[in-house]
Write a protein that binds this DNA or RNA. Structure first.
Length: 825
RNA sequence: GCCGGAGUGGCGGAACAGGUAGACGCGCUGGUCUCAAAAACCAGUGGGGGCAACCCCGUGCCGGUUCGAGUCCGGCCUCCGGCACCA
């Protein structure tokens, strides 16, 4: 054995050996229990990043551990390979998106392979490959058949820089998620997936997601934004128009003093056309045009609006109230029309005060009496209903939940409804590098889906990339011109491609049978592997990717294609690697590449160090000097095995079976196995590594003190345990040391070591003696000391007596095996 | 504003069920080896006081419960993340 730890040679050697022996290839083994460990696949934007390492480390440790616990583990890797950066690169530098993408995949794959992750590379997939997107298209057609995909005219979020539409979820504070450009509203005909049809189930089924972080569930719950209330129909005075509104406060219907419409509401035009109000309404809309939807509806934007000249009739009391249009009313939520109750809604209150509209109190608080003129803000809490006809004196909660809704339903004025904040998922993108939406427009037959047998609709390779103007697919006559599958006449293809979140909404199922050519996936394989037992990824996907994937899974279940309704049983959201508390980014110039550290210290050191930085869910502060500590530790482990092998060649004195050294050695070994096992089970990889370090330090000390004790069963066991425990974290060095110890190939196929609880238990413990809760002495005693003996020891202790002298002992608290607290007065 | 999460040495972090605060690592200080340095190894390292034995203080702040609180409860402060005129 080489005295020096030559990580370069070792890592190269084993990378090759593992590949040659197909160590990580997986197949269905029905007799073995399975585990599916998946880390969110990356977008191949270039070489591996330190964030990738932090991510993929977690999945790899878990996969390696579970294999050795006897599970058949699926641990695949692939590429989320469609998307804008590739196309932007094409526009900037003329490289074809396909080449850009495949080159980056090669780079990233090389990086991941250097790190020694135990993926079954035979299952590699890329969403941009026709083998894959053919099935994305196939699934889209199933959605279309079920009415879950539809095309609609509407206002869409438009990013002028990316020149494409964005889903609501991709708009962050009014700006494009990718390029930070201010998002505009544009009227377009777009494809949507009807995720709102699944709002209720997406909400309900969260009950099942016991293995998800509460924070993610909360975020999804808020995003879906379920609210219960009533739809109430108002009539427009002197017109044959009825307009429903949504309210969560039917108990305040008697407090309505005006009525509001969203500025885009079609009724605004209808009501003002040809009236003296038309002009002012037009000016108001002009004023809003320069303002983005987001700014318009920001909390701190001042209330604004104009009167339409029309009056609405309140069904509950027949009152006529003025109809206004206001900036803060959203067309997309509810019905785009709102009843205004200024006394009990803060927004309406502000609006009323600004425009001098009446305020009428209909809910009185339990204490005190509200007077409209004196109010400085709306009263939104429950109270007693007043001025509400037959309901006077009723508790407002009772009115809101039962009495008023009952009245509305009896009289046919309205009904109970549920509203969601969630909108349908806009999937159209006016870009080239994505999955073509497989439909055709025929002048005769209209919109015709591409038949399954004609899939995939291939992306044409030969297209032009321009910064300005229509997308490459729109420009490509060759692509557009086609034949109607129904009438065989001339027709045109859809030129929109799909949002890349569609690709990633089902990739985890494809991994079960990545090469299946007859279907999107093989049912037997899916039944065996799915759902994903442990999903790992960034918190930034808390809403979009995870919600879309859940939606897809439910649709697939309803289509009878899968038999589970939630795709990810357990979810771990890992933190970012940061520097000086800030996210690493190209613009800050603080990007750390794994490459430089692998070259200097080796992949094992890098893996170990990042895991050691802190718990998975927390953000981790990078430190250049810290990594040397990890490297030092691996060197120590290496030299320990080297010295041990040396000790074995010496003539050693026989060691008595009951020697203290052997006892200490066994205890050290079994205690460490227990600690590391428990820590891995709860994802505390940082403390698991700390325990292995302590073990190493302990073995050094023992080897110094009693080298003879190592040429024994206990000595062998200790060294083997060290290597076996280290293997999931630092797979290369562990494999090499395992070979040196004469273990059979591979260390990664060895059963996980078991511990003996008897041996793991300490024989001696530190007994803590306290007086009034303050530690006054510690002493070593036998672990099985009785509580009575503990009390005796405490009361006999010189230091305890010093602190209790002259005082009355009120009570003695004994915590068996731990401490004694003597309480004095 | 609302909803999550977090505040512990010079630093990353540990303390998993209310019971030794600071494991492990980094950094720093001293030592061994060396002509010297590096590496390695050994010892020390929360703050204050004391010649010492020891004593006092200490987990964002204020208060509470308890024999005992980093951990539980109430009230604040700060930071991070999400949502944000959703009727």
């Amino acid at each position: 054995m080489n005295e020096r730890y030559d990580f370069k040679a070792i890592e190269e050697k084993w990378r090759r050996r593992w590949e040659e022996s197909d160590l990580y290839s997986t197949r269905e083994l029905p007799d073995l229990p399975k585990r599916y460990v998946l880390v969110m696949f990356p977008y191949p934007s270039g070489p591996a990043h330190i964030g990738h390492v932090a991510n993929y480390n977690l999945g790899d440790v878990l996969a390696r551990y579970l294999r050795r616990k006897g599970f058949n583990v699926l641990h695949p890797m692939g590429w989320d390979a469609f998307g804008l950066p590739a196309e932007n690169a094409a526009i900037r530098s003329g490289v074809h998106p396909a080449k850009y993408t495949w080159d980056n995949i090669a780079l990233l794959k090389e990086g991941l392979q250097r790190l020694g992750y135990s993926y079954d590379w035979g299952r590699e997939l890329a969403t941009c490959s026709p083998d894959y997107y053919r099935w994305t298209q196939w699934l889209f057609l199933r959605f279309l058949e079920k009415g879950l995909a539809y095309k609609a005219e509407g206002w869409a979020n438009w990013c002028p820089s990316c020149r494409t539409v964005l889903a609501n979820e991709q708009v962050i504070a009014g700006h494009c998620e990718r390029c930070d450009t201010l998002v505009e509203q544009k009227a377009l005909s777009q494809w949507f997936l009807r995720i709102t049809a699944y709002a209720e189930r997406l909400l309900e089924d969260m009950e099942e997601l016991k293995g998800w972080p509460e924070s993610v569930l909360t975020m999804q719950r808020n995003w879906i934004g379920r609210s219960e209330g009533c739809e109430v129909v108002f009539r427009i005075k002197d017109r044959d128009i009825e307009i429903p509104i949504f309210t969560t406060r039917p108990d305040t219907l008697w407090g309505v003093t005006f009525f509001l419409l969203a500025p885009e509401h079609p009724l605004v035009d209808e009501l003002t056309r040809g009236t003296p109000y038309a002009e002012e309404v037009a000016r108001f809309r002009e004023r809003l045009r320069g303002v983005s939807n987001i700014e318009r509806t920001a909390m701190d934007t001042e209330k604004d609006g104009v009167f339409t000249g029309a009056y609405a009739v309140n069904p509950v009391n027949g009152e006529e109230v003025p109809v206004w249009t206001a900036n803060f009313v959203l067309m997309e939520y509810g019905t785009g029309a709102v009843m205004a109750v200024p006394a009990h809604d803060q927004r309406d209150f502000e609006f009323a005060r600004k425009f001098g509209l009446p305020i009428r109190v209909v809910i009185q608080p339990p204490e005190g009496t509200l007077r409209a003129q004196e109010m400085t803000e709306a009263y939104v809490d429950p109270g007693v209903m007043v001025g509400c006809g037959d309901f006077d004196g009723m508790d407002s909660e009772e009115g809101k939940l039962h009495a008023v809704p009952d009245l509305l339903e009896e009289r046919g004025w309205g009904k109970r409804t549920v509203n969601y904040r969630l909108r349908d998922w806009l999937i159209s993108r006016q870009r080239y590098w994505g999955v073509p939406i497989p439909v055709v427009y025929c002048p005769e037959c209209g919109l015709v889906p591409v038949p399954d047998e004609d899939l995939p609709v291939l992306l044409p390779e030969d297209v032009e990339f321009e910064f300005e103007g229509p997308s490459p697919l729109e420009r490509s006559q060759e692509f557009r011109r086609t034949v109607c599958p129904r009438c065989e006449g001339e027709a045109e293809r859809e030129t929109d491609t799909m949002d890349t979140f569609v690709d990633s909404s089902w990739y985890y199922i494809r991994y079960a049978s990545p090469h299946c050519e007859e279907a999107a996936f093989d049912h037997e394989a899916v039944r065996y592997w799915l759902p994903v037992d442990q999903y790992i990824g960034g918190i930034e996907h808390a809403i979009m990717h995870l919600l879309y994937s859940r939606f897809f899974t439910k649709v697939l279940k309803d289509l009878g294609l899968v038999d589970f309704s939630e795709p990810f049983t357990n979810l771990l959201c890992q933190g970012m690697v940061v520097m000086g508390g800030a996210k690493m980014s190209k613009s800050k110039g603080n990007i750390i590449t794994p490459e430089q550290f692998i070259d200097t210290y080796g992949a094992d050191t890098l893996r170990l160090f990042i895991l050691f930085l802190g718990p998975p869910e927390a953000d981790k502060e990078w430190s250049d000097s810290g990594i040397e500590g990890a490297h030092r530790f691996l060197n120590r482990a290496w030299r320990l095995v080297y010295r041990y092998l040396d000790v074995l060649t010496l003539k050693t004195q026989p060691v008595p079976r009951d020697s203290e050294a052997l006892k200490r050695l066994s205890h050290l070994t079994h205690r460490t196995i227990r600690k590391v096992t428990e820590d891995i089970e709860r994802f505390a990889f940082n403390t698991a590594i700390a325990a292995i370090m302590e073990f190493t330090n302990g073995l050094y000390r023992e080897m110094e003190a009693a080298p003879d004790a190592f040429n024994t069963y206990e000595g062998h066991e200790a060294l083997r345990a060290l290597v076996l425990l280290l293997a999931p974290f630092a797979p290369f060095i562990a494999e090499e040391l395992w070979e040196e110890l004469g273990g059979e190939y591979s260390v990664h196929a060895q059963p996980w070591p078991e511990y003996d609880p008897q041996l793991a238990r300490a024989e001696r413990i530190t007994l803590v003696l306290q007086v009034n809760g303050k530690v006054r002495e510690r002493m070593e005693v036998d672990a099985d000391v009785s509580p009575e003996a503990m009390e005796e020891i405490a009361l006999a202790s010189r230091r305890v007596r010093e602190h209790t002298a002259g005082k009355e002992i009120a009570k003695v608290v004994v915590v068996p095996g731990k401490l004694v607290n003597v309480v004095v007065r």
